[in-house]
């Protein structure tokens, strides 16, 4: 049986891991390569590296870090942040990234999703969607959640699936950084609407939140940062707890 995935997210700025609280105040939480190796040994199923400064400042994700992670880590990883062209993706995959995650660039030019899916296959194209619920309606936001759009989350999710995305990484701006749980209602709606895997992101605070997002939110994977980086939730403990709740995990 396919298992639910636990994915630590390493937000990267200037080659270091950081975690934005509601995407603003940054706290340094270590060397990404060292952290990645630790996570692989501690039972993480996959890793995501997001260059959080990349979209805002137009910086490219660090190829050298990708190279080092690919050399030293034996689980899959996704790289996102500031990716806007087929050439960017080609370079990242060439140096060992398994998947790439695109966000603002896909909203600005949705053809990019199809181009990447055609050239590299859907399996390596993750479309990250940051959305915020405003008066009951979910709207897509850009550039690390700072720029609102009029695009509705559920329309956009269907569009990205149609264009060949292999997976959706959904971050609720209302939940991110709150540690009050994931946006399970929206996640469950997404999961019934599209037929590609959904990664839940934003709001992890307790182990129960993960249980809830797999059960109620129907998520295929759950992503979190600070609860893992600061040791608040050890990944193996989390997986044991998920197993106790009859959620299939890799142990």
């Amino acid at each position: 049986m396919l298992t639910k995935r636990i994915i630590p997210c390493l937000d990267i700025k200037n080659g270091r891991t950081v975690k934005g609280i509601n995407f603003v105040n940054l706290i340094d939480a270590g060397d990404p390569v060292v952290l990645a190796k630790q996570y692989a040994n501690l039972g993480a199923d996959e890793l995501v590296f997001l260059d959080i400064s990349a979209t805002l400042e137009g910086r490219k994700t660090m190829i050298e870090m990708v190279h080092q992670v690919a050399e030293q880590v034996n689980i899959p990883f996704t790289v996102g942040g500031g990716i806007s062209s087929v050439e960017n993706v080609n370079e990242l995959l060439k140096w060992g990234a398994d998947k790439v995650s695109i966000n603002s660039s896909a909203v600005k030019r949705s053809d990019l999703i199809s181009e990447l899916a055609d050239k590299f296959g859907s399996q390596c194209v993750v479309v990250a969607i940051d959305a915020k619920q405003i008066e009951g309606e979910w709207f897509v936001h850009l550039a690390g959640g700072t720029i609102p759009t009029e695009i509705k989350l559920f329309d956009w999710a269907q569009e990205v699936e149609k264009r060949g995305a292999g997976e959706i990484l959904f971050t609720s701006m209302n939940h991110d950084g709150t540690k009050n749980g994931f946006a399970n209602e929206a996640l469950a709606a997404l999961s019934s609407l599209v037929n590609i895997p959904i990664i839940a992101s934003g709001g992890a605070g307790t182990m129960q939140h993960f249980v809830d997002t797999f059960k109620e939110g129907k998520a295929d994977a759950a992503l979190a940062a600070s609860v893992f980086h600061f040791g608040e939730i050890p990944i193996m403990d989390l997986k044991q707890e998920l197993k106790r709740n009859n959620i299939s995990v890799r142990l």
């Binding site: 396919l2 199923d45 399996q123 037929n195 590609i196 295929d220």
Partner: peptide, 13 residues
Amino acid sequence: SNAVKVPQMGWNV
């Protein structure tokens, strides 16, 4: 088929 999510992505036995 679309009875399952496609692609299969993750760890299976």
